[in-house]
Nucleic acid binder design. Structure first.
Lengths: 231, 231
DNA sequence: TTGCAATTCAAACACTTGTTTCATACACTT
DNA sequence: AAGTGTATGAAACAAGTGTTTGAATTGCAA
């Protein structure tokens, strides 16, 4: 126990390369954890990638999970910022405009492989398939706020109460369509499914918005039993 | 190399417990692989669960991957059968009826935790986050046929060519909504999101159908630039 | 009964994992 | 120049991994 604290070392930033090894470890771990998830990345992988000694992770972060926590913390910080980009709109914007803005800013981050925050989506992919103790933290900080924002938009579009189960079903329908275009090692290995270039992503975003607006409108017209439009 | 072939042993089925150990191994491996994925299950876990010796896996299946292949093969067999349930319809059924039938039979298998084929969904979850060499096999045998079936339905609803990119975007919208309700360790750990009982699942299925039919109808009316319905 | 092949078992092997140890190199202060 | 605390590096450690070994054990046929 009682891991040596490198806190003062960072403050002094004058020894050797001024804890620049630490930054190389973080950079290497970010990419590797994103690609393979926590369990399938070894400390030796990270240190080799960062040109550091095997002991460096223990020294700078206590243990492997400490380094992972650092990465996830960074991910959540970025997520909160970009979440604000998706949820902040001009004061008078209509619900439809807010939905469009949400999807148009959210989707590129998920689907565009050249997006520099792409590693975050990959990281969360692994976290969802193979949750670490950090899963609940991610959910509460990064996912829940987005869902609540969507809920408010859709409740307004449906003109119904936010507790109406129909609202959350529509939230799921919208969010599901977005998440489907997440960059994903399976789809990548098996087909070239997700649209790559900016234009395709934008086209998909507009499709999702229009598709969803029509779906929500239909749900609004027939809130109770819209399931039978025919037959 | 040259793994001892237990093929004849199975045929004779007369020694010891007539290769009943083999079945116990398969049963144990099915549950464990479904819960944790290939990489995070150890041979010792499986053998302990099956009350067998550590060497049993090598003896009966060559190696760990051989046992996994056995499990995935079984999964694909079941998947093909249930896929037929989702895709087979009465001859004169309309596209809308076929879509409804597809979602209503597909969703319970994904969402209902008491479904006895639930382990297959879990297995594929892990395969998607952490593909093994078997990923392409699964995709071609189990996923691709479903997508093609959906494509035909939606092309008919849109009254457009099957190669129209709009068709696949709508396929993605429908499939995404279904897959969103997959039982998932992350959602389970973090919230009690997915609907549990049969009634809720059926309600969600009807929601997805109605939502999607409206979305498809909207896409049909404005195939090129449906993205701006207002604003 | 004896021989035979299939099956099980305890033990070990070879390898990888996260982590620790301890000696060394370094920059800076006194 | 000597001292000090930080950082690195090579090696080792302890636990866990998939797999193999070779000696039992078992049921059946000769």
């Amino acid at each position: 126990m009682a891991k040596r604290s490198p806190a003062r070392a960072r403050a002094k930033r004058s020894v050797h390369d001024s804890a620049e090894t630490r930054q190389r470890l973080i950079a290497a771990a970010r990419d590797l954890f994103a690609d393979r998830g926590f369990a399938r990345v070894t400390v030796r992988d990270i240190c080799a990638e960062a040109s550091a000694n095997v002991a460096a992770v223990s020294y700078h972060f206590g243990d492997k999970l400490g380094l992972y926590r650092e990465i996830v913390g960074e991910a959540i910080d970025v997520l909160k910022q970009t979440s604000m980009i998706s949820t902040d709109t001009v004061p008078g914007a209509s619900a439809e405009e807010r939905l469009r803005h949400y999807v148009r800013t959210f989707l590129p981050r998920l689907a565009n492989p050249s997006d520099e925050t792409q590693w975050i989506g990959k990281l969360m992919n692994h976290e969802m398939a193979d949750p670490t103790p950090i899963a609940t933290w991610i959910f509460e900080e990064a996912i829940m706020p987005r869902l609540m924002h969507l809920r408010d938009i859709i409740a307004e579009l449906l003109d119904s109460d936010r507790d109406d189960p129909l609202v959350m079903r529509c939230v799921a329908s919208v969010q599901a369509q977005c998440l489907f275009y997440r960059a994903d090692p399976f789809k990548a290995a098996v087909a070239n499914w997700p649209p790559a270039d900016d234009a395709s992503v934008a086209a998909v975003a507009d499709h999702i918005v229009a598709f969803s607006l029509a779906g929500i409108a239909a749900a609004r017209c027939a809130p109770g039993g819209m399931q039978r439009t025919q037959q």
